[in-house]
Amino acid sequence: MAKLRGRGIAAINYPTGMNLGGDPSQVVIVAQPDGRLVVNVASVELGQGIKTVLAQIASEITGVPVEDIEVRFGDTESAPHDTGTFASRSTHRMGNAVIKASEEIREIVLNTAAKMLEASPNDLEIREGRVWVKGVTDKSVEVKQVISQAQFTYNTPVVGKGFYVKPKSSVDPETGASDPHSTMAHGCTVAEVEVDTETGFVTVLKVYTVYEVGKAINPQLVESQIIGGIVMGMGAALTETVYPRYPVLDFQTTSFRDYVLPTAGDIPEIVAKIVESPTPTGPFGAKGVGEMVVNSIAPAIVNAVYDAIGVQITDLPITPEKVLKALKKSGR
C-alpha cells in the first residue's frame, strides 16, 4: 500500500456562442436627465459579472464613468430581444451590441459638445469623462453634462441602439463543413494528484491552468471564473454523482450529503494564468470564458491518476471504489 503521485495534462478548444438560426443580441441605452446611462439588456447577471463587463464597455466608448452606468436586466417586458445567457456568449454577443449602441451615444455626445464648445465634432476627443478640443488644454466639458444638455438645451433624445448577430451557417452537403461559432477560446490544465492505494482516495495537490480568452475585459472576473470552474470540474471528476442510486428512485440522491461537492478544505493550490490573443469578432477582442473552464480539469485529473497508478479510469467521478477495483483488475 502506498501513496502514489501522478501528473496529467489536458487541453481544450471551446467555441463562443452557437448556431441556431442566428444568435442575436439587442441593446438599448437610454440616458438619464443627469447624464447617467441605463443599458437595457436581456442577458442575465448570475454572478459571472456581465453587468460589470457591459458597463466597462459602455464607459470605454461613451466616456461616461463606469459608476454612472447602470446595466438593467431580467425584465422581459422592457428588455430588448436576446437569445439568452448560455453558450459562453454574453460578453461576446452583448458586448458587441453594447459597442454599437454606445457608438450612437458617442456620436450624440460629440455633436452636442461641438455646439457647446463651438468646435467641429472632428476636432473633439473624449478622455477621463470629458470632451476636449484636441490640442487645447483649457477647453473641455464633462460628458455627463453634455448628455444632460443634449436633452434640455438641444432637444436631442439620447438613445443608443445596438444589435449583433452571428448569422446562421448551414452545413455544406458535400463536405459537411460549416461555420457554427464566432471564435474559439483555448485552455490547458495540468493536475498533480496523490492516490492512496489502500483507500482508493484521490487528492488533488496542485493545478496549473491557463486559458486564452481573447481579451480579459475584467481580469479579476476572468480569474474568478477560472478558479470557480476548476473547482466545479474537480467535483465532477472526483465526487459528484447521482449514481449508484439513480435510476432506482427509492434511494434517490436528495441532499448534499449524497451529492458531494468540494468544500474549502479540498481545494488544491491553483495557479491560474490568462493569455490574450484578441479575436477580430469580439468586443475589444474578447472571447467566451464561461463554460470551458469547467471542462479541462477532469481529463487532466484522469490522466494524472493514470500516471500515478497505471490505470485509466474512463467514467466519472473517480470514486475510491473505482480506483480500488481498477487496481485489483490490473494486479497492482
Binding site: S224, G228, G229, V231, M232, T263, A264, G265, I270
Partner: peptide, 22 residues
C-alpha cells in the same frame, strides 16, 4: 489555514471555488 478550512467546511459554494473566500 487549517482553522479557516475547518470553519468553512459546512458551507457550500458552487461559483467561486472557495479560493477568494479563503
Amino acid at each position: 489555514d487549517e482553522e479557516i478550512f475547518d470553519a468553512l467546511a459546512g458551507n457550500l459554494c458552487r461559483c467561486t471555488g472557495y479560493v477568494p473566500i479563503v
